[in-house]
Design a protein around this nucleic acid. Structure first.
Length: 291
DNA sequence: AAGTAATCCTGATCGC
DNA sequence: TGCGATCAGGATTACT
């Protein structure tokens, strides 16, 4: 469940189940799912087993659970197809389960956390927490240090974003997908925000007026907020919350995946073009190509 | 230095 | 039915 709303659905779903829980067992079924763990598999298992988990945190599409009495965290990234599922310890496992944690929760008892991932672009890892460069009292995993704050973060700096955006020499969609500039936005919400702001995906950032850029940022926040309120976007059972349930935002999409259907604003068919090896969906009338 | 392409993967689906 | 091509919501690495 890869973009910000979907990852936040997972984070908030994990919170009541894992906060204060102790890890009683760790099973790595697919070593490639530890790609981002700096060390051997056994190291991951040994250090995590017996640890107590604190409240899950998130920046962009990265999720992490700090460990009590430690300066480390369990970092989770869902990649393109990752899921984190809460299960009864006796429940059957999904065929694509890669890592299994068993927890003991003080009030709820034993619970199983299954990391399921078809494509293995996602991962779990143990990583050290270090002070954030802009707010040293906040601690983030070292592998998240280069990731910009997301637009939902109260410390997101609008002015800094607008300055850095204007200084870039690239197209606007590429910039929106650049996690070091602003995090949490993926292909769906980039297309949706650009449609809402009536901007073509290839519009050069330096030709984007400050007013247009500010409006785009506002539309990004709107679409992320709406998607979160509807439980995220699910097209099929690949993208689900910790209980395996789908979100409803796919019914609210205006551009993404709507090619051939009328633009909800002007009626002209939504187009789809290949860009950055993926689909870009836009209205040819509302979002005029640059140049 | 910064921008962009190449790469890592599996499985569902579609056309022949 | 079988098989190859295509496509999928991402991040890092390796080039230019």
């Amino acid at each position: 469940m890869p973009e910000l709303p979907e990852v936040e659905v997972v984070r908030s779903g994990l919170e009541p189940a894992v906060t204060g829980a102790t890890v009683t067992s760790v099973e790595v079924l697919e070593p490639r799912s530890l790609r981002r763990h700096d060390g051997p598999d056994e190291d991951f298992v040994e250090r995590l087993t017996g640890s107590r988990l604190l409240t899950p945190e998130r920046r962009g599409k990265f999720l992490w659970i700090p460990l009590a009495d430690s300066s480390e965290a369990l970092v989770v990234h869902l990649g393109m197809s990752g899921q984190v599922l809460l299960r009864d310890p006796a429940a059957e496992r999904d065929r694509l389960t890669r890592i299994v944690l068993t927890l003991d929760q003080p009030t709820h008892g034993p619970v199983r956390v299954d990391f399921v991932d078809q494509r293995i672009f996602g991962s779990m890892a143990l990583d050290v927490l270090a002070p954030a460069s802009d707010h040293p009292d906040q601690r983030i995993p070292s592998q998240v240090a280069h990731i910009a704050r997301d637009p939902v973060d109260p410390f997101f700096d609008d002015e800094l974003f607008l300055r850095r955006l204007a200084a870039k020499d690239t197209g606007i969609k590429r910039a929106l997908l650049d996690q070091t500039l602003v995090s949490g936005i993926g292909n769906i919400y980039a297309d949706e925000a650009l449609w809402a702001a009536r901007i073509h995906y290839a519009q050069p950032t330096r030709t984007l007026s400050r007013t247009k850029a500010k409006n785009l940022l506002a539309e990004v926040r709107l679409v992320l907020g709406r998607a979160l309120a509807e439980g995220g976007t699910s097209f099929d059972s690949t993208y689900v919350n910790v209980n395996g349930a789908s979100g409803y935002f796919s019914h609210s999409l205006n551009a993404y995946g709507q090619h051939g259907l009328p633009c909800p604003r002007c009626g002209r068919p939504i187009a789809r073009e290949s860009f950055m090896n993926r689909g870009s969906h836009f209205c040819p009338r509302c979002q005029r190509a640059p140049g």
